[in-house]
Amino acid sequence: MSEAIEVRDLVVRRGKKTVLDGFSCVIPRGSVTGLLGPSGSGKTTLMRAVVGVQIVASGTVTVLGHPAGSTPLRRRIGYLTQAPSVYADLTVAENARYFASLYGLKAAAADEAVEAVGLTAARGQLVANLSGGQRSRASLACAIVSRPELLVLDEPTVGQDPVLRDELWDHFRRLAADGATVLVSSHVMDEANRCDRLLLIREGALIADDTPAGVKAAAGVDDLDQAFLNLIRRQEEEVAA
C-alpha cells in the first residue's frame, strides 16, 4: 500500500463555519508534500484531522492504513502544532526527553533531535527564555524525536533565518529519503519548490494537487508565487461564473 494518507469526502465544521466541505486527497508514502493556501483556508484544520485531534462531521481519514487518531498510529506519527507547544518551564533537553520517554526512548534520542534542530548550545536553557525561532525549533525537536513514519508539520520554518530554513529542509528531505512521509504547511514559495508534491487549498477546497513543476505548468507561469495567485484567481472566476 503506497499511500500514507487518504482523505475522502471530509467535512469539518468549526463554530458556525464549514471549514472543509467534501475534501479529498491522497498523499504518497516517502514523500514531502507541501500544504499551501491563504490564511484561514483550512490547512491547520486538515492537519488536525490527519493526526486525529479534530472532530469531523463526516468523511474518512485513513493514515498508514488505520483510521486517523486510532491507538496504533500514536506511536507512528509526529505532529508539530502551529504555535509552539512545549513546556515553557522546562529546559529544551527536558522537553525533548519527556516526549522521547512517551515512546519508550532514552535521552540519547532526545539529544539527537535537539541537535537536528540546531539547539544543542541552548539545550540547558528554559524554553521560556528562548527566542521565538528557538522556541519553535524546540517544539520541532519534540515532534521528530520518535523518528515517526508520518511527520505532520504546521509551518515549521516560520521565524527562522534562511540558513536554518535550508538546514531544516535538508533534514525533512533526508527523513523522506529514509522512507518517512512528511506533510508540511507553509506560506513560503521557495520552500514549496523543495516539495515532491503540492496541495493547494483555498476556502477548504483542493484547487491543485501536483508536483511543483506541474503546478507551474497548469498555471502557465514559471514562478510558484505567480502560479499560486493565478490558480486562486482562476478558481475565483470559476466560482463567480
Partner: peptide, 9 residues
C-alpha cells in the same frame, strides 16, 4: 497546545 500534542502521542 501541549495537551493537543500529547493526545497525538
Amino acid at each position: 497546545g501541549t495537551l493537543e500534542r500529547l493526545f497525538t502521542t
